[in-house]
């Protein structure tokens, strides 16, 4: 059965000013003077000219005590220590890997910041250096934590915990980092039957939930058995829901994803990406989230 759906583009509906909380925020555009008071400290997204604090990006002004920042709506990933990220190996170098994490500069994972297979703790030998490509090669995906941020903004990662490491079978979705809500944990085993890692850098990994965590492997052997169809259906549905949420600009976290998943159940998986269905299920999700807040 071949299915081909074509449509005419529809003009975007202007979102009416809803009197929601968006209006209370102090919104600025580049070149706007935020304050002429010299008592403030200059944060991200601002600069000082002639003793005036001026915005350099478009977004909402955030004040923390004396610090004034403007948070842009969409940027590359700005690493912060402790963040959970998902990244892709782009290059194997001496004693380190280069990792693409959607930051301004490639991130690095040092051989010494990584658990050896089996979780063994010892000094890294020359043999380890030679076997680096056996651990991780170009194209491989990893989950990791930000260990430090260099002065130029480049990020250094570590995978020194059993929950981090190489990722096996699953699906990656890339969204803007600003859409990922910061939470206590970014690893979720969702009750619908699959797991997600919500990387702070906007890389989202959806994968089948494993029954028993294979601690001994230390995350270097990947399970190459075919994923059962029932798991695939859940993963594909989750993937499309996350794409729908990101397109409609709703923050991503476990509850919003789960609500959206439930809202989508009346539709076929492939229909979720149709514009009108996306709009419908995200609206339903939004409403449920508002109800939850009360």
């Amino acid at each position: 059965m071949a299915a081909v759906a074509m449509r005419l583009p529809v003009a975007r509906k202007a979102v009416a000013p809803s009197g929601s909380r968006g209006d209370e925020k102090h919104l600025v555009a580049p070149g706007d003077t935020i304050t002429t008071d010299t008592g403030y400290m200059r944060g991200h997204g601002t600069y000082v000219d002639e003793e005036k604090l001026i915005a350099s990006v478009a977004g909402a002004v955030e004040r923390v005590n004396k610090l004034v920042c403007v948070k842009a709506l969409k940027t590359r990933y700005n690493g912060e220590v402790g963040d959970i990220v998902v990244g892709r190996i782009t290059e194997v170098q001496q004693k380190r890997w280069k990792v693409e994490t959607n930051s301004r500069l490639d991130s690095v994972l040092l051989l010494s910041s990584m658990n050896l297979p089996g979780g063994e703790l010892r000094r890294r030998s020359a043999e380890d250096e030679l076997a680096m490509r056996d651990y991780l090669q170009e194209g491989d995906l990893i989950s990791a934590e930000v260990q430090s941020v260099f002065s130029d903004g480049a990020v250094s990662l570590h995978t020194r915990s059993l929950k981090y490491g190489k990722l096996g079978q699953g699906v990656l979705v890339q969204v803007s980092p600003s859409l990922v809500k910061r939470q206590k944990t970014h690893f979720h085993d969702l009750p619908c039957g699959a797991s997600v890692i919500l990387g702070n850098n906007g890389f989202i990994w959806i994968y089948p939930t494993t029954e028993q965590k294979d601690e001994e492997a230390g995350g270097f052997t990947t399970n190459l058995e075919p994923v059962p169809l029932s798991d695939r259906e859940v993963i594909s549905r989750l993937r499309n829901c996350i794409v729908a949420l990101a397109t409609q600009k709703l923050m991503l976290f476990d509850t919003s994803i789960l609500y959206c998943y439930e809202a989508s159940l009346s539709h076929q998986i492939k229909d979720i990406l149709k514009p009108e269905v996306m709009e419908e299920i995200v609206l339903e999700t939004r409403q449920r989230l508002l109800d939850l807040e009360g």
Binding site: V15, G22, L27, G59
Partner: peptide, 18 residues
Amino acid sequence: LDRVVREHVRELTALLGD
């Protein structure tokens, strides 16, 4: 241009909520 940018920012912040 400023009007376009502000409209865009306002729309997106309203959608993002939080």
